[in-house]
Design a protein around this nucleic acid. Structure first.
Length: 573
RNA sequence: UGCUCAAUGGUGUAAUGGUAGCACUACAGAUUCUGGUUCUGUCUGUCUGGGUUCGAGUCCUGGUUGAGCAACCA
């Protein structure tokens, strides 16, 4: 297979240049560093595809590292789901690391900073510290504790770790520059005291925890990361990332990494993913879940990996989508339509076609004997290698109410008592002869005659009809619950809107209907196949309706399908 | 009124000083046992002023617009 010619994104260009220049001995190492405080969403997938993709493409390694420096928010529940989602997406990490693996090294490093006069213990309140920070346009002012003697800093920091100091009473701050135009250089906090929550891995071992800025770059360095790739909001952190590493890397303290004095990790930033009609903020997602506005993290309307999976998105479709949108430094907004297009493109190759009637009306074939017949239909037309299924054909069928019009105009070429021939999918050609209505004028039964010589696949069935309609046999049809999903929000960019984002939710984002489906669907009403610990989703196309996936709520008696995406509809009424 | 980053059709993304291309969307037509798919075609773009150059989307410079930055979050 020829691979499609694709230009390199700007990160790949940097990597190739580094490789050519022999940086880091030609070693490529990345990491995916989630905080285990929530479920992965499609924005994370963009980062995952970058981090794992670079390593794969350039014979490097990508490690999974949990950035677990804040026990208040983190939990093993999230660790497990993150690992599962990454495997489901089809990526493989080298090692699993935790920032908490480095708490000892980080603590010693902090002590080194104190001894070198580069850090001090501040006893002010959070409010005081914030106030002294200044604003982007005004320089900050120094803390009264900034010039505390080294010995005192040392003693207090140890007291913090020993549990002798109350939470919030003291922090360890880097002594850098209170007037720096980059706010992150105004004596950033390195350590804070957290005793209220045990850490999900280290338990009560630590009473002080490093902040992101004092943990992330160092962790990269300890592991030997060469390209530390993250999103654009960390651009302003990069000088601090470099500053902290500068303090100990190189000749003097090379022992902290397994690599030589030349080794340096570098941070690069790309644009994060935004998609129309959704939110990508973990905070907002958590709120939707907590307040029951969606059914959970895996609600099929959520942009989480588990939500998309339950919605019927395949890992391949999600990865294709990410590959289509690319990586730049421009913050934009991706059309939700592109995601839907990608999943249709993916599913159309493999999803077996099945008939289901959503708004059924009875069709009686008046010249049919009533003796039922088994029809064999291909799962995907023109692809016999993808299997066949059996349908029952008989005198009484359900068809879609919208497929019959008593008085049709010239644009309507489905069933109408106007002499026009219409094909029943995979079966016979029929002509409508009339209909029956109830007192309200609502059609209750459509009558038609069929041509017994016109069966699909036979010579008599070769003649053209303008329309083909779907049907299921009344006596063997099964009831199926179909959950029809639509965009979660009714506005394109909920985050740009003033006020409460919850008021922007689309009230029609979920409709539940019962439809009549052909009996072959009964086969999927059992537990899904599990491969490598990952349950396999079963995808279908309900003809003319869209792509659907079997929902885990399905039982032996009750089949539930989620609509992944509708089919495109170019027929405007 | 600080620092940082960015600006190419409606959207996303290429072009790395040499013909502005691709995908999605939209619209037309052809094909079709899904009004789906497929195929073909059409519309629409380099934020702006100046400069360098034989030649600028690309380099320099001024402006404009947008985004990020003032958590004991990551």
């Amino acid at each position: 297979m020829e691979t499609e010619e694709k230009s390199l994104n700007f990160i790949e260009q940097i990597v190739e240049k580094d490789l050519q220049e022999g940086k880091n001995d030609g070693r490529i190492q990345t990491r995916f560093p989630p905080e285990p405080n929530g479920y992965l969403h499609i924005g994370h997938v963009k980062a995952i595809c970058m981090d794992f993709g670079i390593a794969e493409k350039y014979n490097g390694v990508c490690n999974l590292r949990f950035d677990d420096t804040n026990p208040v928010k983190e939990d093993t529940e999230y660790v497990d789901s993150i690992e599962h989602d990454i495997r489901w997406l089809g990526f493989h990490w080298g090692n699993i690391y935790y920032a908490s693996d480095y708490f000892e090294q980080l603590y010693n490093l902090a002590i080194r900073f104190i001894k070198e006069g580069k850090a001090y213990v501040d006893e002010q309140t959070a409010e005081q510290i914030a106030e002294q920070k200044g604003t982007p346009t005004e320089p900050g002012t120094a803390s009264p504790y900034r010039d505390r003697p080294i010995e005192e800093n040392l003693r207090l920091f140890q007291a913090m770790q020993n549990g002798e100091i109350e939470d919030g009473r003291m922090v360890l701050r880097a002594k850098i520059d209170m007037a720096n135009p980059n706010m992150h250089f105004r004596d950033p906090i390195m350590y804070r005291i957290i005793t209220t929550h045990p850490h999900h891995r280290t338990g009560r071992r630590w009473n002080v925890y490093p902040m992101y800025d004092f943990a992330h770059g160092q962790s990269d360095y300890f592991e030997g990361v060469t390209h530390s790739i993250c999103t654009l909001e960390f651009v302003v952190h990069r000088p601090l990332y470099d500053y902290f590493i500068d303090q100990f890397a190189g000749e003097n303290f090379a022992g902290l990494s397994p690599y030589g004095p030349e080794y340096r990790p570098h941070q690069y930033e790309f644009n994060r993913l935004n998609i129309t009609y959704t939110v990508m903020s973990k905070r907002k997602m958590l709120q939707l879940v907590k307040e029951g506005l969606v059914a959970g993290w895996d609600d099929p309307r959520m942009p989480t990996v588990c939500g998309l999976r339950r919605r019927g998105y395949t890992a391949q479709a999600i990865r294709d989508f990410i590959s289509k949108i690319g990586y730049t430094k421009v913050e934009g907004m991706i059309d939700l339509g592109l995601l839907e297009h990608t999943v249709r493109e993916n599913l159309k190759e493999t999803a077996p076609r099945v008939c289901a009637i959503f708004d059924p009306v009875k069709l009686v074939i008046t010249n049919h004997t009533g003796e039922s017949e088994t029809i064999v239909a291909e799962n995907i037309d023109g692809h016999p290698e993808l299997g066949t299924r059996q349908m029952t054909f008989s005198r009484e069928l359900y068809i879609e109410r919208g497929d019959f019009l008593e008085q049709a105009d010239k644009n309507f070429y489905r069933l109408s008592p106007n002499g026009r021939e219409v094909r029943l999918k995979s079966a016979y050609i029929i002509q409508a002869t009339g209909c029956e209505k109830d007192a309200d004028g609502r059609i209750t039964t459509v009558y038609a005659t069929y041509d017994p010589e016109s069966k699909s696949g036979t010579e008599g069935g070769n003649r053209k009809t303008k329309a083909t309609i779907n049907w299921v046999d009344c006596s063997t049809a099964i009831d199926v619950e179909a959950r029809l999903y639509d965009r979660l929000f009714k506005v394109e960019n909920p985050s740009a809107e003033e006020g409460d984002f919850r008021e922007l939710l689309n009230p029609d984002s979920l409709k539940v209907v019962t439809c009549k489906a052909e009996s072959s669907l009964r086969e999927v009403m059992h537990k899904p196949q599990v491969i490598d610990g990952i349950a396999q989703c079963k995808h279908f196309q309900l003809l003319k309706q869209g792509y659907f996936v079997v929902d885990p709520d399905t039982t032996d008696e009750h089949l539930v399908l989620n609509r992944t995406a509708s089919l495109k509809d170019n027929w405007q009424k």
